[in-house]
Amino acid sequence: MEKKTLNKEVLAAVRHVPLLSVAAARILDLTAQVDHTLADVMAVAKNDAALTARLLKIVNSPVYGLLEPATSLERAISYLGENLVVSLVLEDTIGAYLNKPLPGYGGGSGDLWRHDLRTAIAAKEIALINRDRCPPDVAFTGGLLHDIGKSILSEFLKDGYQEILAELAEKEVVDFVGGERDLLGIDHAQVGYELARTWGLPEVMQMVIRHHHEPSLAPEDLKPVVYAVHLGDIIAMMGGYGTGTDNLFYRLDQRYTDYLVVGPEQMGMLMLTVEEKFNETVETLQMR
């Protein structure tokens, strides 16, 4: 099929994706604002009964070992922290996309969500080292959302990954996103960006999703956070948490050093910290 036709079909699929819930959209809006507080998140969450119940159930699970059960949302959220609340909100509202198998990438159910979570934790750790220019919570949420386009593009990729792998071997394309563009006329970052626009996500999230493989193309003021997610994505892949056939066929943008301080010698400690925090988060999220 012609690339142009495929491209149109992909974009049509994006337009058919259901909208975000009001609570999810508000919470994502809030977390993209640098000066928000946990109280702001709480104010939104308390209007969502299902979310409140879920947060209370998790905070009262054995993982937290509370002596007295938490009965108020305030207590639950202050224990869990914003990142876990955002993870739960996203899993509740767009979990169908985050958890579905990625046949076009050879990825199983949950692979994308684990990769996203790992990227989010890594992006936040990088932001914490660079917190003067990169808000950690924004980097975390950006990490959770960065690959959302794969959930749509996977359907169109089908067995096409074989062609992309062959093109990579022949050096006809420079990386997997280049292969996607060559095959389908659009890549997963662009598809994710269209989805983010459809959902009305904040601009910073749209830019993270759109430019996470080419951070140098992001608007100047957003480059630190886009680079943090770019590196977080790489840390997730290096740690064995990729999404399948795309493996580690992505390029590191060396210009990250213009925006972030992350020395090669810090990489080992970052990987170790990410591994430990990821295991903790997974344990908590599974306690439903």
């Binding site: 290096m238 580690l248 060396q254 990987m271």
Partner: peptide, 13 residues
């Protein structure tokens, strides 16, 4: 394995 990077910046592998 490693990410595509001619300079081998993060050469943990």
């Amino acid at each position: 394995a490693q990410i595509m990077d001619q300079n081998n910046t993060f050469n943990i592998g």
